[in-house]
Design a protein around this nucleic acid. Structure first.
Length: 563
RNA sequence: UGGGGCGUCGUCAAGCGGUAAGACACAAGAUUUUGGUUCUUGCAUACGGAGGUUCGAAUCCUCCCGCCCCAGCCA
């Protein structure tokens, strides 16, 4: 697997790593990790963290582990582990043989907990969950000490052993750290370290019925793996004193440094796992890999490339400001990459029949069309031309407004890589008045698109031959939500869904050169956007997803007029 | 409300006491057989606000204002 190019740009985290390298803090070693919980599919927010952690390790010649932070059996599964592995790999990163699981550390963690009990730094508390909450106090009032706080070491040890042995029901006892119930930082008010959960774990099965909490497991997992820089998101800033507390109390010989950065928010979508699950479960998305989803798998299916996503993650930077990055930024990165890499091809999404009156019936010509106007090395393909064609409905207007310079009665345009044609007649449905067919004449002197007399046309439009083109289904995706930030307080984000976030066109026509396309293939449909072949394609019909539109200055002009 | 964090262009984001990078977006123009691409130009006398220190402040100090996170036996 090819490793992604390391980042050259700097940020406050790289500044810290630089400084540590200079001072020899970790003997010049850099070890990071990407530690997802396998309870959902990774999304573009994870991609930011993945690029950061793997990017830093690459830049400094260090390592980056992939670690499943699986300390809560509820909701975790192998399906999610597999999605994480697949997507990190697809993004272009390599963890070598360092795929780890917090669940592999359960025995070690248990022993660490026992050590803490023996040192009087942890105790078994038999308050109920509700009582623990009450005892915790509030932002303004200190908490109260649990009546079990001064339980003897022997009794706690005995109880903890029996908790592990399965003698107690869920919720009857927990193991707590003995810190400070009056701490202004609520995280430090005797946090829970272990809870009883008689639930089958996707990896350890029923071996355990007590599971460590994040704060206890995470710092120790980092320490066990020799992580130097433990990078996480801002909401864990309050937890840092606790991260350090466990490591200090246990006097471990390796104490990683936790550094927090702002998680990514993207406009017109949602990023939280809970909400993505809701979209999947309510059937709003057709699954985790629905091209509308901000998941890595959704974006892959939609046609985004790993290069574009990595470029995006580099360009948004890393800081501590809460940020809402514009979707347009991501789309720009996608277009930039696709513009370079995609072969051009012609497809008509909403066909309008065109008859070239003076073109001989039965005659077929083949035009040689380059795959990329700026890259002749990408080669070309043959596109058949005949008397009956399809063009885009949008490319003809009976009464065109000013500045519209496509086809209209009496007007001449160029068919891309073909002839100049002039509209001479319009056929309408007698009932609806809808234009159902237009008639044109072509100028045989303008083959391949130039007029020997030097006359110009205002527009070049795309087309396909009616008889030779292939049927296709095209799925057009737009932003998932109507508003930039659907997470406004006091509202349900579902209300802000964009009802037109997907439009499925069943009667599209594509040029015959695409007959052998396979899922994942990427193209630019000339003048329309970037599209990729979807796995739903069958022998009967090829299905495409629109990855992103082309920049469309005409659409902008139309928009402005409306406003 | 106690604690923690953050406030620099519409959106991200550099800047680390010497006089506001860059990208996206936006606007104008040039080139163009994609109203695409490419190119050129414009776009913060101003850094949440008010004071102060200094020859000099986005950078240091003081006070104020705003936003985010924490009261799961989630991570």
């Amino acid at each position: 697997m090819s490793q992604a190019r390391s980042s050259k740009s700097s940020d406050f985290i790289r500044d810290i790593v630089n400084e540590d390298m200079k001072t020899g803090k970790h003997q010049g070693r850099v070890a990071t990790r990407f530690p997802p919980e396998p309870n959902g599919y990774p999304h573009i927010g994870h991609a930011k963290s993945i690029c950061l952690n793997f990017g830093i390790s690459l830049q400094y010649g260090g390592t980056c582990n992939l670690r499943m932070d699986d300390t809560d059996p509820a909701g975790e599964s192998m399906e999610y582990v597999e999605s994480l592995i697949r997507d990190v790999k697809w993004l272009g990163f390599d963890w070598g043989d360092r795929l780890y699981y917090a669940s592999d550390y359960y025995e070690k963690l248990y022993q660490y907990a026992v050590t803490l009990i023996k040192r009087g730094k942890a105790y078994v508390c038999s308050l109920s969950a509700d009582e623990i909450r009450e005892y915790r106090g509030t932002f303004t009032e200190p908490g109260k000490e649990s009546p079990f706080r001064d339980r003897s070491v022997e009794e706690s040890l005995d109880l903890f052993t029996r908790m592990r042995a399965g003698e107690f029901e869920d919720g009857t006892h927990v193991l707590r750290a003995r810190i400070d119930m009056a701490s202004p930082n609520i995280t430090m008010r005797d946090p829970v370290m272990y809870r009883i959960k008689k639930e089958t774990h996707y990896r350890t099965g029923d071996t355990w019925c007590i599971y460590p909490m994040y704060d206890f497991a995470h710092c120790l997992s980092d320490s066990i793996e020799g992580i130097t820089h433990s990078i996480c998101t801002l909401e864990f800033e309050n937890n840092r004193p606790l991260y350090d507390w466990f490591l200090d109390q246990l006097q471990v010989d390796h104490h990683p440094q936790q550094i927090e950065f702002a998680r990514l928010n993207l406009s017109y979508t949602v990023m939280s796992k809970r909400k993505l699950i809701e979209l999947v479960e309510k059937g709003i998305a057709r699954g985790w890999d629905d091209p509308q989803m901000p998941t890595i798998s959704g974006m892959r299916r939609r046609g985004y490339t790993p290069e574009a996503i990595r470029d995006f993650c580099e360009r948004i930077g890393v800081a501590k400001n809460d940020s809402l990055v514009e979707m347009a930024f991501l789309e720009n990165c996608v277009r930039e990459d696709l513009n370079e890499e995609s072969p051009r091809v012609m497809a008509v999404l909403r066909p309008l029949r065109v008859v070239i009156d003076n073109y001989p019936e039965g005659r077929v010509e083949e035009f040689d069309c380059p795959y990329h106007p700026q890259k002749p090395e990408m080669g070309s393909r043959k596109v058949p031309f005949s008397r009956e064609l399809y063009i885009e409905q949008e490319d003809f207007m009976e009464n065109p407004p000013k500045k519209y310079y496509r086809l209209a009665p009496g007007r001449e345009v160029r068919l891309r890589y073909g002839y100049f044609v002039k509209c001479v007649n319009v056929v309408k449905d007698p009932n609806t008045g809808e234009v159902i067919e237009i008639h044109c004449t072509f100028d045989p002197e303008t083959k391949s698109g130039f007029a020997p007399d030097g006359r110009k046309v205002d527009a070049t439009i795309h087309w396909v031959s009616a008889a030779h083109s292939l049927p296709a289904e095209v799925r057009l995706y737009d932003r998932l939500f109507r508003v930039a930030n659907p997470l406004r307080e006091g509202t349900d984000f579902i209300e802000f869904l964009n009802p037109k976030s997907v439009e499925i066109l069943m009667n599209c026509r594509i040029e015959p050169s695409m007959k052998e396309t396979v899922p994942g293939d990427k193209y630019q449909f000339e003048r329309l956007g970037y599209f990729c072949t979807d796995p739903d394609s069958s022998a009967n019909i090829i299905v495409f997803n629109r990855t992103v539109t082309l920049r469309d200055t005409w659409a902008k002009i139309v928009e402005k007029k409306k406003a």
